[in-house]
Design a protein around this nucleic acid. Structure first.
Lengths: 233, 233
DNA sequence: CGCCAGTTTGACCAAGATCAACGCAAGTGG
DNA sequence: CCACTTGCGTTGATCTTGGTCAAACTGGCG
């Protein structure tokens, strides 16, 4: 499943025949959000700092300016799940209105814009095209979530990791080499695997020449076709 | 024949106070959609009939009048994933604009209203409160999808089944006894399990007195607290 | 009555989790 | 500058959950 990245130049080293299901929602359409500039305020967060907490009021939403954000939930017994990562340009935090179901945390240093919901509503009521832009973004988020459910429910560990890597290459707009801002633990919690399994699968990919791993947070794409073949299940 | 038929619109007599994570997105807010009545057309489908196909044009959306719909995707090797079930009052098919990522099928006999997207857009541009209603519905869908990802990524088989049953009781607005319109296979593909595992877990619940299963499509809730304890993980 | 589709149960197997070391680079304090 | 710690990442050895394969059961219907 490969994700189409609407937002930028990089159009096509890749076959994006419409059959590719997973559009990443958060990106793209950023232009339409320019109308919000006036009501936002800039904030920055340190590594692992909480941007908003589970159960807190959902009275604003965010756009990532720089850095990486994870949306996650901790279960009582310590199991953790990461619902999504957000990179520069992505919007997050508009998913649940009354009370937050997930918390958002800074993976590394992060800068975001913060938009109050109240003012947003006013803008939307007055400006239907802005409303449409935001709605389309949410719909894409939803489509993406459904693709991820497919992955979590039906794909094997190598399929998940391959899909994840390709998705990251595309979303980060990387051609040959990519750096993964998140830890192996974050990846595991995103893919519904353990950290050991993620390591083992990545080592296996490396051994087979599909990817290179010069350092833990750096991945080189050596054989895209092979990775795609594994990932598309 | 034999297929049960969810009968009429029991809409939302239920308090969906947002805090309950199982609350289904699609329901509720139906009232706000009354503005669409004029542009919709009624359709009915037989058991297992396709309502729309994966890859087809996403030029309309639907509301379930009666029966149950499954939104699903078939992988090349035969694995299947069900993204969501929709019951009376739920809306579906607005998730992806350009091309459908999933197909929708009738679980039993189904009656739906079908709304063309074009006309919908016009209505929304003119009527911000309608737009807001639709958007909130989508946002709730999204929140629900994130909860389901958590389930698929991090919960054990008994936890999934328990969560599923409680969710069904809530969505179908059932107190003590529930009838499950979908097959064990559908449930398995919804929960990311095999049919055998679903059977075994349900049998175990039955043996422990948590639920009763007078017939395969009928479930009685005997010990809600026990089920909730298993399900909340 | 016997077939058929769906369900249930059992025996076995394998993917991935768990448990346990070990490696390694970046601090930190003597 | 060098022990020592600390936080990740990697690898290996087992164990468990849930998948696979196979067979029996059920109710509806020709």
């Amino acid at each position: 499943m490969f994700v189409q990245f609407t937002g930028s130049a990089y159009s096509d080293t890749l076959d994006r025949s419409g059959s590719s299901p997973g559009a990443i929602a958060q990106s793209g359409l950023i232009e339409t959000l320019v109308g919000f500039e006036a009501i936002g305020s800039r904030r920055s967060f340190a590594r692992n700092e909480e941007i908003f907490a589970e159960g807190g009021p959902g009275d604003c939403w965010y756009k990532v300016i720089a850095g990486t954000v994870r949306l996650c939930k901790l279960l009582a017994d310590g199991r953790r799940h990461i619902a999504e990562f957000y990179f520069g340009g992505d919007c997050f935090g508009l998913e649940n209105m009354p009370e937050r179901l997930f918390s958002a945390e800074a993976v590394g240093e992060v800068i975001v814009m913060r938009y109050p919901r109240r003012a947003t509503e006013r803008l939307l009521d007055v400006n239907p095209s802005l409303a449409r832009g935001l709605r389309d973004m949410t719909l894409r988020d939803l489509a993406n979530a459904q693709i991820r459910m497919l992955m979590l429910g039906r794909m094997s560990a190598p399929e998940r990791v391959a899909t994840f890597l390709l998705d990251m290459f595309e979303r980060r707009d990387a051609e040959r080499a990519l750096d993964l801002p998140m830890s192996r633990n974050d990846i595991a919690d995103y893919l519904g695997l353990t950290i050991e399994t993620v390591c083992r699968v990545m080592s296996a990919f490396k051994r087979s020449g599909t990817i290179g791993i010069p350092s833990p947070h750096r991945v080189e794409l050596r054989d895209r076709a092979a990775l795609a073949a594994i990932g598309e299940a």
